[in-house]
Design a protein around this nucleic acid. Structure first.
Lengths: 151, 151
DNA sequence: CAGCTATAGTTCGATATCGAACTTGATTAT
DNA sequence: ATAATCAAGTTCGATATCGAACTATAGCTG
């Protein structure tokens, strides 16, 4: 809900965080090329930024998705030929995921669509403001994340 | 994804926010009484905190849900007799939503289940830390929210 | 080596979420 | 007054998300 002054500061912080998360998600989702959803973009973003060839479990952990949720998303990306799936020969249980050329193209188009908004944001706020906000957010995330898991 | 040092501060901030939102959501969801889901709890939480008798549209706006998403949740809450729905006589298009006694009971049980974690949190961080984090978060949310909407 | 345990991924059913189209009731403009 | 427009809510189809149960492979232990 919208944070309101009568709330305790901690409640207000969580309300603002929930709101911001939602705004970012919808802002990005609405700019994506047709056919791409936000979670699909996130997976491709991870593959592009953190390197190809990682396993589904690594992706799920990095994106706070469940294994079953990621299976779903990867199947859709694969159906559109945006990722390639390889069986790991060293460990028969694992798979490794790569972006295909089509995948890189779609990712590039997504980034082009998102760029203007990101540039506006960097005009509206300084990098120092973001840097100054980080320690508390990291501490909060770490505290909340003691006993994490991926199903 | 997990924020990593090589990222720009703004990216890291959004990653941390996404992570925190997810941790809070799952932490609460796992403590709720059986049969209650996180969005159902959020609706009851709003009714309890901001007052009974508000309309579905007001709830949707406050919780960043779409109208159709809220219709779904309200139908489930109503099916379990946790909310009461009244047709607004002043405006035939609107409805007004109340918690039922069962709803208040379920909400109370949820809060009892969540309380220990909240108290731990208030031991781990000071209210000043939350207060100090608020101005930036509010500014960011406001900036992102220019041109908001509810479908 | 045989069996137990742990890990990686999938399947399934239930709920959530979104957007578009639709219905119905209010409001506005001429 | 009546037609056009707007506002509140629902329906529908598609995708997402979660947890539990399941399969298959790997690794460990006696």
């Amino acid at each position: 809900m919208a944070a309101e002054p009568e709330d305790h500061p901690d409640i207000q912080v969580f309300d603002e965080i929930r709101y911001i998360e939602h705004l970012v998600r919808t802002a990005i989702a609405r700019k994506l090329p047709v056919g791409l959803t936000y979670p699909q973009f996130e997976v491709m973003n991870l593959l592009s930024r953190r390197g190809d060839g990682i396993t589904p479990l690594e992706i799920a952990r990095a994106l706070q998705m469940t294994k079953s949720g990621l299976t779903n998303t990867l199947q859709r990306l694969h159906a559109r030929n945006l990722v390639r799936v390889e069986h790991c020969q060293a460990d028969g249980r694992r798979k490794r995921i790569w972006l295909t050329p089509d995948g890189r193209l779609a990712y590039g188009q997504s980034m082009v669509a998102i760029r203007p908004k990101m540039e506006d944001l960097r005009d509206g706020f300084t990098q120092k403001e973001f840097r100054d906000a980080l320690p508390f957010l990291k501490a909060l995330r770490t505290w909340l994340g003691e006993k994490p898991s991926v199903s």
